[in-house]
């Protein structure tokens, strides 16, 4: 049953992705990318990652769609047809995909309880979290406590990206610099 649901959701995801490849209207592309995020959130629920699905639904379908629409309002709404052929990218993609699939052949089966990922750190967190943290949601206890340094770093990355966006397009400037620039202009006008 799990496999069946996975395959149905995957077919919908693939259809969305392929229509993104073929569509020229950027507005439609942005909407389809929102659809893609919602479908992937569904798939994440079937994979037991409820926290991640929650985040993906809020971020992917909410914020990123709004930001992309904002970008479209500031730039252009249609994609120009590309002049060169699609053959080389297609070959590159095929080779990369084949290499990745070759890489998965060594991996343990999907859902195998004895996979290397499930024998060391993960179960340890699940066992010790009951005693040490006493919080029902293990994802929260790892996120904020066991891996608190990691999350501090991630927060700093979000902070830095936000500052970078503000520097690039918010049009904020320090008043002193503006005044200095005006003074320079005045001096140039006099001389």
């Amino acid at each position: 049953m799990q496999t069946f649901i996975d395959i149905v959701l995957f077919l919908m995801l693939a259809a969305t992705a392929i229509s993104i490849v073929r569509t020229k209207s950027l507005f439609a592309i942005v909407m389809l990318s929102g659809v893609f995020s919602l479908l992937s959130a569904l798939l994440l629920v079937t994979l037991d990652a409820v926290d991640v699905a929650f985040t993906e639904a809020a971020v992917g379908a909410g914020i990123s769609t709004v930001l992309m629409l904002g970008t479209l309002a500031l730039t252009s709404r249609t994609e120009k047809p590309s002049s060169h052929s699609n053959f080389v990218p297609f070959v590159v993609v095929l080779i990369t995909g084949a290499a990745l699939i070759y890489g998965t052949l060594d991996m343990p089966n999907f859902g195998d309880p004895n996979a290397p990922a499930h024998v060391h750190v993960g179960p340890d967190y699940l066992e010790r979290s009951v005693e040490e943290i006493d919080v029902p949601n293990v994802v929260t206890s790892i996120l904020a406590s066991y891996r608190g340094f990691d999350t501090l770093g991630e927060t700093a990355v979000v902070f830095t990206a936000g500052i970078a966006v503000l520097l690039l397009i918010s049009g904020l400037r320090r008043r002193r610099e503006d005044e200095e620039a005006d003074e320079v202009d005045d001096n140039e006008g006099q001389s």
């Binding site: 930001l67 927060t155 936000g162």
Partner: peptide
Amino acid sequence: TVTGVMVAVYYAFASRPPT
């Protein structure tokens, strides 16, 4: 931080004159 960054980014995009 996440609230601040998301709203600040939205303001930055929405405050520019659209084409």
